[in-house]
Design a protein around this nucleic acid. Sequence first.
DNA 1: TTCTTCACG
DNA 2: ACGTACGTGAAGAAA
Length: 905
Amino acid sequence: MSQKLVLIDGHSILNRAFYGVPDLSNAEGLHTNAIYGFLNIMFKILEEEKPEYLAVAFDVHAPTFRHKMYEAYKGTRKPMPEELREQVPVMKEILKAMHITIMEQAGLEADDILGTLAKKAEQAGLEVSLVSGDRDLLQIATDHIKIRIPKTKQGRTEIEDYYAADVLAAYQVTPLQFIELKALMGDTADNIPGVPKVGEKTAQALMVEYGSLDNIYAHVEEISKKSIRESLIEHKDLADLSKTLATIKTDCELQLDYEQARAEGFYTPEAYTLCKRLEFKNLLGRFEKDAAANDSKIAESFRQIEDKKEFLQYLKKAQKQKEIGLWLITEPVDATTKKEELLGVALSVSDEETVFYALTHEKEPEGQLSLFAEAVESVDDTAEITEALQELSAGTDTQIATFDVKHQYDYLDRSSTEQYFDVLIAAYLLNPLKNDYDMEAIASEHLGILIPGRAEVFGKRDFRTLLSEDAGKAMEYACYGAYVSRKGKKVLKDKLEAAGMKCLMEEMEMPLSLVLYDMQKEGVAVKREELKAYGDALVARIEELEQSIHTQAGTEFNINSPKQLGEVLFETMQIPGGKKTKTGYSTAADVLEKLSADYPIVRDILEYRGLTKLKSTYADGLAAFIEEDGRIHTNFNQTITATGRISSTEPNLQNIPMRMELGRQIRKVFIPREGYEFMDADYSQIELRVLAHMSGDEQLIDAYRQEEDIHRITASKVFHTPFEQVTDLQRRNAKAVNFGIVYGISSFGLSQDLSISKKEAAQYIEQYFATYPKVKEFIDKLVADAKEKGYTETMFGRRRPIPELSSSNFMQRSFGERVAMNAPIQGTAADIIKIAMIKVWKALKEEGLKSRLILQVHDELLVETAREEEARVREILTENMKSAADLAVTLEIDLHTGNNWYEAK
DNA sequence: TTCTTCACG
DNA sequence: ACGTACGTGAAGAAA
């Protein structure tokens, strides 16, 4: 058996894959569909052929001789879409990482490289498979050179194979004649003009009859069809040019280094890391076992300390270190609670030394006393270890790098945050668009090292199980955490500094992490019984509505199912209001509301929807989160949002009903503890004020100086109406435009919101911009700057990348533009309230007050206030919120107190 | 797991 | 011509 060479036409396959694979992108916003498709095709071919050698050819972007000839003839080539262009360098990077030979040479097209290499290999006695999406290559086919054309359809890749005989069978011409066939018929995709009026059929007939281009012209007078004959004669120059264009060179000065082109050693750690970054989860398996061998080098320096005394001494010694990495592993005590216990401590002091200690926990004796109870020296050493950790982390002599510090404050010194650096927060600031920031991702993206992933190590096990089942793995996993934290700090700190976010990190996010920790720890008291009663009260009405809806529909169905509901309303009942979504009928509230006037059943459905939402999400949902202390401890997440806001989960306490009275009643179950009251302060239109400041628009700033209803003033200015005569409608419209500006205005969006025509909406916007000209200037500049830099920035330097801005897709690009307008405004407002939170928290703490900050809802702070401290807390909130930022307009707040959250709003 | 809907700012 | 307002999280259904 002779040896085999696989040659791949890089751009052509990438192109095929780009159009054949649905749009994909990773968390960085990089499009990846073409790369994904390419790799799939390549792996498929490799598995089929098992070749000895492999090379990929690319065009160099500089125009080649053939292009120039063509461009001289007719314009330029169609540009490559940006989504594809950005994938080319990454594709090459991944091929390089896989040690696959890339052939490219200025002045040579990929076709010529492929043709030359194929012919040379054939002469050397190899079997050649040439993979391309381009039928042009068929002219190269012989008995030993197989042209393979992959077709991607419906996610499946099928490959058409052509030896010389197959070309003859398919086109009735030999591969060499195929060149002239192409020259006659042309190829728009390949920019070969061809002879006008000669298409595939005519060209084929001519070639079959005359055998060559020369022979056709020798007998051109015999051609019966007048129009074809004349076109051939008139456009002989085009035929000749086309032949030159269509001919692939096979005699270039080019050598393939067969040693380097060996088809082996693809699965390198670099390639694995890249695949991971590109989020090709199902390709990762190919790399894993080879990559695993490489992991162990770092892990060789990891060790476990078994003896508690030894570990305590180690912690003491570590206090002399200036920089350490520390990672504490905690897990909930059991599935019923959020309460966690400390399971392990990993400490990394240098590249050579990272250690791990596993804590022991005394377990309650179950059932009868064991005979061996005396023999088991199982004591809970949490207290001792915690004490040592507190000592280690107190003061600023030892800088501690860690991952997710908020989850570890239980065991650390909390008198300041200056000694901590959280690589999780740093990674978030550097790119807030990612879905998760696990240790593996940070290690690979920022340190370029490969570490075993959580899923890989744990499977479905938790850390506790892992410790008992595979202590070595558990130790290694924990140590990686400390190691990556310590190493990552240096890199991330530099990156933050370079991006101008050092201050944001050190003075805003790190202190905030402790504030959020305290808020979570504090929680908020909820009246369990009242919440239950609220839910029960809903049930009766829900059941009544369910009956009524089923009766009116004449059929029993699941009202909660949009699919069934759509079918019942728009098919069974024949209610007009047609399709909307790709999966079926839309039954969203705005659709149903338009129908509710005419159809009683629709009114019932809307009411039903509202009530079941309250029951499931709030009544039942919240009840499940009340802990033993009678309080709900939400998670405040600091590394989720794209704009810098914080988010709340398990449960979400940032979306408790407010706008509708019935829902709002739920707020009555949130109560202060005995002897306390709630004090709630929210910023008044903080985003619009931020807009006024950032744009510097004198009119808008002036409007705020008047301390009057801003929407009314806007209406007065925009509609040229005296302030007192502004109608409610005018005010509502002005308010919608104000909101629209903050969201990244579009006439369509505004028209939807106000139920007016796009044209009218556009007029409002125009008038608004005429009133506030600098606002227009400002948001235009935001978009322009973002396009140039690829990201937007808040007043405090927080960045948000906007990859969509370079999209060739209108929808995506428009989205990017709206985001560019919104993110700096929403983000700056988020920054301001974060500053306020830190200031309020500090003031309460420094003055030794009992009152506590417990909730944040984007522009609102809730303080559980000791009654005797009311006056002082009022001052603290007011002062600190107002002075959180120095803007051209004042920051105003609305502040209320009450015996529950309902009263305090 | 993904989609649809809906609660909040 | 394209088809949306910005930012979240949770529940239930469908796939």
